[in-house]
């Protein structure tokens, strides 16, 4: 028996990260082979970072055969936009940015318009972008461990012509065989990270040295208390509540979104192992940092039915 044969026969089982990686790559290649106009939704956060990294692997030494799409609400952290532009340039990829111009003109903002803001600048804007470019399949970075209604969602999740999700009418998904055939006007959201957990994501970022937005690391940043959260004053559009002046504190973010709606945590963690350590020792789940989920347990299910990712 040659050495290499012996190495193969005695190699340890694949690790959970290796198996998750293989599954995600398989899903992406299947979409590339069967979709007419696929696109990858790139939200700049850590899940998107992992998804993009996997896409680069899946098609190496070539480039992923689809563009990236960023739906910009115009209220993202400035560091996110800088990071996005730098990453796309480094990797030599095509990025499409979509802004709901009508919403901007109407002055829709996260301070005055609450739920309507998310609806108009995110949900409606995403639908308009997909319709405009006629994308038939869109990759998203959602994971099943994020909350309860996602746990039941398929990896290939069909949307009717109005982009609505019908949880009662999902196709069975067997083995690693995906039925990608669409009816007229239907589109598919594909979630290659479905079976990853938050810890898997961080562990993989660590193992593969994947670049992430610096906002995930603790640093001294100007903050105010807003809506029951610690919010970073990212630019002069922030409406500072009466009686407060911005306080510089050592904070970081567990998720990234629109800065006035994203709660920071006080932290000193400025290396990846420290972030992971903090995450494992902390007792608050990830989505609590986002204002969107607070209404009711069933709120995400409702939003998803309406077309929110």
């Amino acid at each position: 028996m040659s050495n290499i044969t012996e190495t193969i026969l005695t190699a340890p089982d694949l690790t959970h990260l290796q198996r998750l990686e293989a599954e995600s790559i398989h899903i992406m290649r299947e979409v590339a082979a069967e979709a007419e106009r696929p696109v990858m939704l790139y939200s700049i956060g850590k899940d998107s970072a992992v998804m993009l990294h996997l896409a680069m692997k899946a098609f190496a030494p070539g480039k992923p055969p689809f563009p990236l799409l960023h739906v910009n609400t115009t209220w993202k952290f400035r560091e996110m936009i800088d990071f996005r532009d730098r990453r796309v340039k480094e990797l030599g990829l095509e990025l499409l940015e979509w802004i709901n111009k009508d919403g901007v003109q109407r002055g829709i903002n996260p301070f005055d318009h609450g739920g309507a803001y998310t609806d108009i600048m995110k949900t409606e804007s995403l639908k308009a972008a997909l319709d405009h470019y006629q994308f038939d399949v869109a990759f998203g970075g959602a994971r099943r461990d994020e909350e309860k209604s996602r746990a039941k969602e398929r990896i290939f999740s069909f949307r009717n012509p109005g982009h609505r999700w019908d949880p009662k009418n999902q196709r069975p998904e067997l083995w690693n065989l995906y039925n990608t055939r669409k009816n007229k006007g239907e589109t598919i959201r594909v979630f290659p990270l479905s079976n990853w957990t938050e810890l898997d994501i961080w562990q993989y970022i660590y193992k593969e040295s994947i670049p992430i937005v610096p906002l995930y690391y603790a640093a001294q940043r100007p903050t105010v208390e807003y809506n029951g959260m610690t919010v970073m004053v990212d630019d002069d559009r922030m409406r500072i509540p009466e009686g407060q002046t911005p306080q510089t504190r050592s904070i970081r973010f567990r998720t990234l979104g629109c800065y006035p709606l994203t709660g920071a945590v006080e932290s000193q963690a400025n290396t990846l192992p420290e972030i992971i350590q903090e995450m494992l020792l902390t007792t608050t789940s990830e989505r609590q940092g986002r204002a969107i989920d607070k209404d009711s347990a069933a709120s995400m299910e409702k939003k998803k039915q309406e077309g929110y990712f």
Binding site: T15, H16, Q203
Partner: peptide
Amino acid sequence: YLHQHEQKSL
């Protein structure tokens, strides 16, 4: 800890 967890199977 991370090293140990990286070796987990599924």
